[in-house]
Computed example of a mutant assay.
Amino acid sequence: MNRFIRKIPLSFGQLLSTLFLSLIALMALFPSVLVGPMDTIVTATGYPLAPPSTEHWFGTDEVGRDVWNLIVHSARITMLVGLLASLLSTVLGTTVGVISGYARGSVDNLLMRTADFFLVMPAFILAMVLAPMAIDFGGSKGAILGIRPTLLVTIVVIGITSWAGTARIVRSQTLSLRSRPFVDRARVIGASHTRIVLRHILPNLVSLIVANTILTIVAAIWIETALSFIGLGDPFQPSWGTMLFSAQQAGAAGAGAWWYVVTPGLAIVFVIVSLYSLSHSVTDLFGSRRKRVG
């Protein structure tokens, strides 16, 4: 195990990215432990749009709440949306891609024409159109596993509008694997289609699926941020995108309160860059393992 860990190809930048994402994970899991309860209008202790100081390292927002406190608590929603939406997108895309690539023929044509529609229509445009209708339909009362309906429908909308790219990639690799000798041997000895897919094709798609899932998280975070920035986020479960929306509404940029805009913006950028780096690490890791096996 130690020999395997030492051989994992991590550059200095990728190591920093992994450490940063670990910090974000801690922020998302234990925000109250790190910075206490989330600041509200009632509990705010600073002056409105106060610059960074020893008391408030990243300044305050328009009602005097500590920006760092909001950043830490908002990390949970941003990452939760990214993870759940990408999971839904990956499951849909992988399922469609494997079925399409393995079945071929009319099934392949039908599924790929459907995927083409979602590829031609940008995911954000579809999400922007569907999100208001879905939010109105879902309502805003109650919660499912701690997730309010308005946030849940945002996750679903992002997931069902961003699976097509995954489906295309998985289909292409499935077509290649389908013609490999080990699949032909399994077919000759009487293995069922389900067994061939689950035991011989999917295991060889793991590295591709994992790396693509990380990139899908990136896309989901972008879409969630954009939807929140135009006012389609849930103000009762704030994310970094809703922080940018609030900063815009408060006129922070015009008032010179750069910290209110830059802090959530940099948090998003650093997470995106770190996820891209992690995706390359996963690709390098599985690639090196295949070479050693070969």
Rank of each mutant, 00 (worst) to 15 (best):
A250C: 08
T18D: 07
W240R: 02
S277D: 11
V293T: 14
A115V: 01
A115K: 02
T213G: 13
D284S: 15
W222K: 15
T225A: 12
A75F: 11
M128E: 03
V156T: 10
F245C: 03
L21W: 15
T40S: 11
L278W: 06
S274N: 02
G101D: 00
Q173F: 14
S179W: 11
P132N: 08
A103T: 13
Q237E: 11
V81Q: 01
F30W: 08
A257M: 01
L10G: 03
A131Q: 15
Q248P: 12
P235K: 03
F58S: 08
A255H: 08
L19P: 13
T194D: 11
A253I: 15
A267K: 06
V282K: 10
F118C: 04
L215A: 05
F229G: 01
M1S: 15
V63N: 05
L21I: 14
V156G: 12
G93S: 09
G241T: 00
L26F: 09
G254W: 08
R199Y: 13
V197T: 11
A219W: 15
L84V: 09
I272P: 11
V107M: 12
G101F: 03
T263W: 04
G165A: 07
F270N: 06
P52A: 04
R180W: 06
A211Q: 12
V293K: 08
G101P: 07
L208P: 09
V67L: 04
E62G: 12
G93Q: 04
A75V: 03
V120F: 02
G142C: 05
R104K: 12
D234N: 08
I144D: 08
W259C: 01
V67E: 05
L83W: 10
I5T: 11
F118A: 03
H73A: 04
M121E: 01
M243T: 00
A28E: 03
D108G: 07
P37I: 00
D116H: 07
P9W: 01
L34C: 06
L227V: 06
S106L: 15
V153N: 03
A25M: 13
S281C: 11
V156R: 02
G287M: 15
A226L: 14
S140V: 13
V183C: 07
F30G: 10
T194F: 10
L130Y: 05
I268D: 10
A50Q: 12
F137I: 14
L23H: 07
V170L: 05
M243S: 04
F137S: 13
L198K: 12
F12K: 13
F245G: 04
P122D: 02
A134T: 08
A247I: 00
D108Y: 07
A220Y: 11
F30C: 14
A186N: 14
S207K: 09
F58L: 14
M121G: 05
